[in-house]
């Protein structure tokens, strides 16, 4: 770069990349300036002067911020910003109770909650309850479940959830549907899936039935910010989230459901295994891997209609002396091969 050639020492001392070099802030700047200096020997005097100017600004150490102060102040701020939200929730609940007592007091409730977004809550005890959200999404709550819905100011449809439920979310690309179950966050546009929080097992499970679902740990967003630890799921896949470690694992649902096929489709006579697995793969949308081509060329004869995927796999594997494993969200079949 030629532009520094006629710069004065003052101008050099004010230039960001020059400061970066002298104060040791950037290796990239150091490389540039050392090269530049080598090719501009006539500028040595000015560069040395500029360097000296910058090194003059040594402040004597003042009061330094302590880590304890930082921790205490950050916590104080977080407490402060959470308090008003909790108060609002409490306020809405009491206002709702008041309205019921008053019998005709619902108008008051709407008046009071008009400013904040409307929160709706459901609890189930022994019964299954089906609720329709304002966006026409349907949530079927199993017994002992709890859901709270609100329209977030940024347009998101937000549900806080615990228990077990089947979600059928109406597609809306402009308004993501976000479910918080503890620290596990599920983000979808329009899909259907099962969600179960299992406090005893300290896990949360999500089984996708249709569409695509993204799951991540709320706390992980802090580390990388861009959801690097996000898991994306397709139908018949399951995310298992550990509430203790925050780990997310991808696997398969207990009982994969396939597209309905005309009867008789799954009756085989001396059919190579790889053709059968390709057919199953297509039906369930699950990858079935046959790492050894010898296994793929084994043949199978039998009727696999009206069986679950795992029953079908059991029958196939028994007949060819192989076994299968579920790895991540794939099924891997291994065996000796056939003669």
């Amino acid at each position: 770069m030629e532009r520094y050639e006629d710069w004065s020492a003052e101008e050099l001392a004010m230039e960001s990349s020059f400061i970066g070099w002298v104060l040791g802030l950037s290796d990239e700047d150091a490389l540039f300036w050392e090269n530049w200096l080598a090719s501009h020997p006539q500028a040595h005097g000015r560069v040395e002067e500029a360097r000296r100017l910058l090194l003059s600004f040594r402040e004597t150490a003042g009061t330094e911020p302590s880590d304890e102060a930082e921790e205490a102040d950050v916590r104080a701020v977080m407490r402060h910003i959470r308090r008003p939200a909790a108060f609002r929730r409490w306020f809405i609940r009491s206002a709702a109770a008041l309205a019921i007592f008053a019998g005709a007091g619902t108008g008051v409730w709407y008046y009071l909650t008009r400013q904040t977004s409307t929160v709706t809550e459901w609890h189930t005890t022994t019964q299954v309850q089906q609720v329709t959200l304002p966006d026409q999404s349907v949530v079927t709550l199993s017994p002992n479940s709890h859901a709270r819905y609100r329209d977030a100011p940024n347009g998101e449809r937000v549900v806080e959830f615990s228990g077990e439920a089947f979600f059928k979310v109406t597609r809306n690309e402009h308004r993501p549907f976000v479910i918080y179950a503890g620290n596990m966050v599920t983000r979808v546009l329009g899909t259907s899936f099962w969600l179960r929080t299992k406090p005893q097992a300290r896990t949360i499970e999500l089984d996708v039935v249709t569409g695509k679902v993204a799951v991540y740990d709320r706390r992980n967003r802090r580390v990388a910010y861009q959801s690097m630890n996000e898991v994306t799921l397709l139908p018949n896949q399951r995310a298992t989230y550990s509430t203790t470690t925050g780990d997310l694992k991808k696997g398969l649902v207990d009982n994969p459901v396939g597209e309905a096929a005309p009867s008789g489709q799954f009756r085989f006579t001396n059919t190579p295994i790889q053709l059968i697995t390709a057919k199953l793969s297509k039906k369930y949308g699950i990858v079935i891997d046959l790492p050894d081509p010898l296994v793929g060329s084994c043949t199978f004869t039998g009727d696999l209609n009206d069986l679950s995927l795992y029953e079908q796999l059991d029958l196939i594997c028994q007949s060819i002396h192989a076994n299968y494993q579920i790895k991540q969200a794939q099924i891997v079949i291994r065996g000796q091969g056939c003669r």
């Binding site: 950050v74 967003r221 802090r222 910010y225």
Partner: peptide, 11 residues
Amino acid sequence: SDEAAFNTLMR
């Protein structure tokens, strides 16, 4: 309204 982002920004 991402609290984690806010927390990180503060720190």
